[in-house]
């Protein structure tokens, strides 16, 4: 599902974030991405989401070679990847409902289908009663769950998360991770960047450890 083959990423300032990275994630797998800060975790996720492009090497996601993807196809490609961020990236002038509905509005779903799917996603993350609230009225953990609902509302086959529990206390972090597990159980490929060692060491999933832009031995 996620296939890196000798991938290099060098930024314009000559900093080499990834140096010949190769790894493979199966369809339906759940894995953690760890490593010290600056090891290249964010860069790796950006390459998968096509926020950045690799300098050398192949990134193949769901049988699509990202190096060959023209610019105009990028939005359609991104619709099959759910993204969860540390700082949630919610729109603060819109209600919880409107935030979660955004990917469906973009892909042109009809009104009834949007209502149904948004409520299903909010139900899944336990926020069904708060659809009319503005994000600012929610706690940090609740905002993160809105972000997760938005990421899964159009049922993408891949879910990427960048430090999703970075700002949360251990108990809330545990709940968020359980949510990710539930999505994985229905077949979604889940890839989570995290440095929360206590949390991920208690979970039975593969860990991809980066060190200076390479896989750690």
């Amino acid at each position: 599902m996620i296939n890196f083959n000798q991938v290099y990423k060098r930024y314009p300032n000559q900093h080499e974030a990834l140096s010949g990275l190769s790894f493979h994630l199966e369809r339906g797998e759940m894995a953690f991405l760890t490593g010290h800060s600056g090891a290249g975790k964010s860069t790796l996720l950006k390459l998968i989401a096509l926020i950045e492009r690799s300098t050398h090497g192949q990134v193949i996601i769901n049988n699509q070679n990202l190096g060959r993807m023209p610019r105009w196809k990028v939005p359609y490609y991104r619709r099959m990847i759910g993204l969860v961020f540390q700082d949630h990236n919610l729109l603060h002038d819109r209600t919880v409902f409107d935030n979660v509905a955004l990917p469906l509005i973009i892909s042109g779903e009809n009104h009834r289908e949007i209502g149904r799917r948004v409520r299903a996603a909010l139900d899944k993350v336990g926020l069904l009663g708060k659809e009319r609230n503005l994000p600012i009225a929610l706690s940090g953990g609740e905002q993160q769950r809105v972000g997760i609902a938005r990421a899964v509302v159009n049922r993408p086959p891949i879910l990427l998360a960048d430090e999703p529990t970075g700002n949360l206390d251990p108990e809330l972090s545990q709940e968020i991770m359980q949510l990710f597990e539930q999505f994985n159980q229905v077949g979604v490929t889940v890839f989570i960047a995290s440095h929360d060692h206590d949390l991920i060491s208690r979970m039975p999933y593969r860990r991809i450890v980066l060190q200076n832009g390479r896989l750690a031995e």
Binding site: W72, P75, Y76, R78, N89, L91, L102
Partner: peptide, 16 residues
């Protein structure tokens, strides 16, 4: 700007 970035991240086209 922030809104445009989010829209692009969740797959919004330039036309959108």
């Amino acid at each position: 700007q922030a809104e445009i970035r989010v829209i692009k991240l969740v797959g919004g086209t330039n036309a959108f």
